[in-house]
Design a protein around this nucleic acid. Structure first.
Ligand SMILES: [Zn+2]
Ligand SMILES: [Zn+2]
Ligand SMILES: [Zn+2]
Ligand SMILES: [Zn+2]
Lengths: 156, 156
DNA sequence: CCGATAGATGCAAACTATCGCATCTGCATG
DNA sequence: CATGCAGATGCGATAGTTTGCATCTATCGG
């Protein structure tokens, strides 16, 4: 193992995704740790993972990692805008690497989940920015309500 | 107390708000219980109450009521569209009786909370309904992002 | 008004998430 | 490469939320 120390670059950092994260963390004054790199590695765009899902996957690569670290790191990544954090009503919040924004409509009555086109959401983003100077990070919205079927069933 | 049974109308139901709720519950096939009436009574438009706030208030009127009942009832009311359920990032979700919709913008970096005019949100509501037939219940949105000050600080 | 029953509540345990503090480590400095 | 320290992690405690099950009750039919 003494030959592994190739020029100071940490082991886990030698993939493009990890390299990108490492740079990004350093740029905002955050430290690069093995835990953070592995936790990021378990996330991907399009996958809704719970904190426990992430913990389970991370544990196989980094035995001994702690749940608190997973939670704290996921919160950090959320604050940095790297991942979305969403309550889809399934008991635990889900985390997802941000790529193209996408959103969900969830029926209060039957639980159906539809996908919502970001094109409908973008005007809101723009309007908020124009009116308040606030830059919203709406990459993965979950809106509750009633699907077409349940809406008519409820009223009639 | 034997003279209290006035025509089968339960004790707690003799206020206009409670009467309205009782009717509404029966209309959707839900039972009317003292717990539900008192829990609704603790909520009001404009007040952000946590589940624990609600529990504390309910307990003074109904000693012995259980936390689970409060949680289950709040979820029921949320599903029925009576109250909004929102994660403002403060640790516990907040519940509020629905009246006029209002929304919040929350800064990831400094924690500032601005109010968001529903006029900016309404077009989204309308567009979703038009496109999907889905009737969204967006009465109390919480959108995270960066406030004007923090947005410039982060980029520059 | 009584009895039957679907469904609500109480209770305890499990699950989800956060926090304080001691220890460890990434990173800067010389 | 050694040293120092701010900050990250591990750990246990605590807060917040959900669930399974036994019991109780609102509601309905008689
Ligand atoms: Zn999604
Ligand atoms: Zn539905
Ligand atoms: Zn509010
Ligand atoms: Zn801010």
């Amino acid at each position: 193992m003494s030959r592994e120390r190739n020029g100071g670059t940490p082991l886990a950092e030698r993939t493009s995704a990890a390299k990108g994260l490492a740079d990004r963390l350093r740029r905002v004054g955050q430290r690069v740790t093995p835990q953070r790199l592995v936790i990021l590695g378990t996330l991907s765009p399009g996958a809704h993972l719970s904190a426990d899902d992430v913990f389970a996957r991370v544990e196989t690569h980094l035995p001994g990692v702690n749940r608190s670290t997973v939670y704290r790191t996921l919160e950090l990544f959320g604050d940095l805008g790297l991942i979305s954090v969403t309550d889809l009503g399934g008991g635990a919040r889900v985390f997802e690497l941000i790529d193209e924004p996408h959103h969900h409509l969830i029926c209060h009555r039957c639980g159906a989940i539809l996908e919502l086109d970001d094109a409908l959401v973008d005007p809101l983003r723009v309007a908020i920015r124009a009116r308040y100077g606030f830059v919203p990070a709406v990459d993965h919205l979950a809106l509750f309500g009633f699907c077409a079927a349940c809406a008519t069933a409820t009223n009639g």
